[in-house]
Design a protein around this nucleic acid. Structure first.
Length: 220
DNA sequence: TGTAGGATTACCT
DNA sequence: GGTAATCCTACAG
């Protein structure tokens, strides 16, 4: 279930405009170890990315883009280099980087990271975190630690809010692992989840569990 | 217009 | 280990 990822031969740096204009399964491992900076009115938080998932668009039954363009996923169908933020489970936001090639609705979900700047602000934003490891351990936690919500949907990367830095250093290729995506109902066997081996911020893998049918007359 | 279910998390035993 | 929370989205009728 876990396998090493064949390292990219000639990876582009995140400052290169072509960095995100590639298929998402290629971009995803190249994001590991990079630094994502979030500049918000209340301050600046940066995370070192440790876990991601690739979604490939119309061909991918697990992608929000699978059923075509809607108001919700419109950003994914635009050019690479923008953030796609979505709301889920009635309370959480998660963020993606829209990738290429071109307008193919590819995206990489940012699943976990290590807060490397703005620890105090991240702790304030994530009061339920019992340790700094939990500040950005999980896609909704990472989004909350960065102060990202619905208003950041469609923000450019790089841009005034988000910056993607090389990392110091970027992930060592031999530490990159690859396996099935977490929590998705369809396409769960496609090994498009990438993470850094040994990182405590990587969220534990969970298979998708179908919601139990509501009982008629019961609550809900 | 109604309804089922979700790229999750926190808290319970 | 299990499940409630909570509302938006997509889709059927």
């Amino acid at each position: 279930m876990t396998q090493p990822h064949p390292a990219t031969q000639d990876p582009l740096g995140p400052a290169d405009p072509r960095f995100l204009d590639r298929p998402s399964p290629t971009v995803a491992p190249d994001l590991l170890g990079r630094i994502l900076v979030s500049e918000r009115p209340d301050g600046r938080v940066a995370v070192r990315i440790t876990e991601v998932e690739a979604y490939t668009g119309l061909e991918d039954p697990a992608s929000h883009a699978y059923r075509g363009r809607t108001a919700r996923n419109a950003v994914m169908f635009g050019p690479p280099g923008f953030v796609y933020v979505y709301f889920t489970y009635g309370m959480h936001y998660c963020m993606n980087l829209v990738t290429g090639p071109g307008d193919t609705a590819g995206a990489v979900l940012l699943r976990a990271g290590e807060v490397v700047e703005g620890l105090e602000l991240a702790r304030y934003r994530r009061p339920s975190a019992r340790s700094d490891t939990e500040l950005a351990q999980g896609p909704a936690r990472l989004t909350q630690a960065l102060g990202v919500g619905r208003e950041q949907n469609g923000e450019p990367v790089p841009g005034p809010v988000f910056q993607l830095l090389p990392g110091a250093p970027a992930a060592a290729p031999e530490l990159i692992r690859q396996g099935p995506r977490t929590g998705v109902a369809q396409g769960a066997d496609t090994p498009y989840r990438f993470w850094l081996d040994g990182e405590p911020t990587v969220s534990p893998y969970r298979r998708h569990v179908p919601r139990r049918a509501r009982t008629s007359g019961g609550k809900g």
